[in-house]
Design a protein around this nucleic acid. Structure first.
Length: 455
DNA sequence: CTGGGGAGGGGGCCC
DNA sequence: AGGGCCCCCTCCCCA
């Protein structure tokens, strides 16, 4: 008998004792349901119980009793099963609450497993989408959407490794990895598809192979993939000027190495997390310290705590990758409306009263607003004269007919490239992202001319 | 290689 | 609860 088998059998023996209520010296009440367990195991498994039992160990004759109301009996059942078997029965429905309870109970192993479970879910969900694309062609097809949606479906947890697989890895004493050989194979295939999309559909120069390694798969522009998946973004299988502008942006983002993710799948996953988020994620109070009476909300993904649930929801976007606020001018998405607004003011409204070239302060009188694609910035008159760029001043009245105006209703799922004009737009178009020439438009940049974003 | 600046992301907190 | 502001930090680009 090897030592692993011995440990397993030992745990099995203790579990049998627990089920037969033999030598159980710790009673735990959860939602009115009584659980009995051995304090030795609880002490060894949980920081919470370690503290609790070390304080109550003076009287060993009486069973220790603990009561919890911050998680459900089902959740504690899962955790207790893990304590006695090393197997954590996780599902897409219970993982958040199990993680929250584990955080409360200071069970780092359980938290780590939950994190891997969630991370695997997110990663493989995206990979499934990419892989499904490869099966249905390279260009825009209406079928893509349904295939992608299937892999994002909340009810069908997209994890390839079953719960048993996870437990099995733990049971075998292996460090569990969310990537099986099967998924790695998918990643490789997916990376090829990403490159193919980048080089054909997106008309992006050949991406360096380094950006498509399994370790940094998320660095590939899955937003672009989504755009390709989205039938609303396509017109007869060919990218529109708007989509091309987005793709140009994505290309730039890609080469900047920004970490991006599928906003649609992220949003769905974020909604799932928010929907299942327990009211109380945790209680602040370090061990060995005085417990702070005020309740705080603990992030299930990290150690961060906040005072308000709203702040936690905002913080969770940093984990889920949800970016619900798209810039209507360039399609870039943000986690917060204020960030999107700041971006819009700075990038698209030339909000900084500084000459981009000489960095001197500039006013409407001493400078001009220069438009380069969807980007606007200011140059002082001296710099404009020095650079000698082509100047295409447009009459103020003409500009007022063609302002970049953001829609009043932020439609999260609408194509990010949407310019709403107060009047019918005529040629030449104001937006010219594909132009490499520096085009100067004399534009009014006051709030009266460019309406603020309404979300 | 390094420092400065721009842009973006995130936390705290007020309204 | 959401919006918004302020502040700080990090990352990236460029000179």
């Amino acid at each position: 008998m090897d030592i692993v088998t011995y440990h397993t059998r030992l745990l099995q023996q203790l579990d049998e004792q627990r089920k037969k209520d033999l030598f159980c010296d710790c009673h735990i009440m959860v939602e009115g349901q009584m659980f009995k367990a051995h304090r030795n195991l609880l002490f060894a498994s949980s920081g919470y119980f370690k503290m609790l039992l070390s304080q109550s160990c003076k009287d060993m004759s009486k069973p220790t009793t603990a009561t919890f109301d911050v998680f459900s009996a089902d959740t504690f059942t899962a955790i207790l099963d893990f304590v006695y078997s090393g197997k954590l029965p996780l599902s897409g429905q219970n993982v958040i609450e199990v993680m929250s309870a584990a955080s409360y109970l200071q069970m780092t192993d359980v938290i780590r497993i939950c994190k891997m479970f969630i991370k695997s879910s997110l990663d493989i969900s995206e990979k499934d989408c990419y892989s499904s694309m490869s099966n249905s062609g390279r260009r825009h097809h209406s079928g893509h959407q349904s295939v992608c949606n299937a892999s994002w479906e909340i009810g069908s947890y997209p994890l390839h490794e079953s719960d048993d697989d996870i437990s099995e890895c733990i049971e075998n004493g292996h460090s569990w990895t969310p990537y099986s050989s099967q998924t790695r194979s998918k990643e490789s295939h997916c990376n090829e598809m990403t490159r193919a999309v980048a080089t054909t559909v997106l008309d992006i120069p050949q991406l360096p192979n380094s950006t498509c390694s399994p370790d940094n798969l998320e660095n590939t522009d899955s937003e672009a993939i989504d755009a390709v998946c989205d039938p609303d973004m396509s017109h007869g299988g060919h990218p529109t000027e708007e989509t091309e502008a987005i793709l140009n942006f994505l290309t730039a983002s890609h080469h900047r190495g920004r970490r991006r993710s599928s906003y649609k799948s992220r949003a769905v996953q974020a909604d799932q997390i928010y929907a299942t988020m327990p009211t109380i994620m945790g209680v602040l109070g370090g061990w060995g310290e005085e417990v702070i009476p005020s309740m705080r909300f603990k992030c299930p993904f990290c150690s961060h705590m906040v005072k308000r649930k709203t702040d936690l929801k905002r913080h969770l976007r940093s984990h889920t990758g949800e970016r619900p606020y798209p810039c209507k001018a360039c399609g870039k998405r943000f986690t917060r409306m204020e960030h999107m607004r700041n971006h819009f003011r700075t990038i698209h409204e030339a909000g900084k009263l500084i000459c981009r070239r000489c960095k001197r302060p500039v006013t409407d009188e001493s400078g001009q607003v220069v438009q380069e694609g969807t980007r606007r910035f200011r140059l002082c008159n001296e710099c404009v004269a020095e650079v000698g760029v082509n100047n295409f001043p447009i009459e103020l009245d003409e500009y007022e007919d063609h302002p970049i105006i953001l829609s009043g209703d932020e439609e999260k799922e609408s194509p990010p490239w949407t310019f709403h004009r107060e009047r019918e737009m005529t040629e030449p178009q104001l937006i010219d992202d594909t132009s490499s020439d520096l085009v100067i438009h004399e534009v009014m940049d006051s709030d009266d001319d460019i309406k603020p974003i309404e979300c």
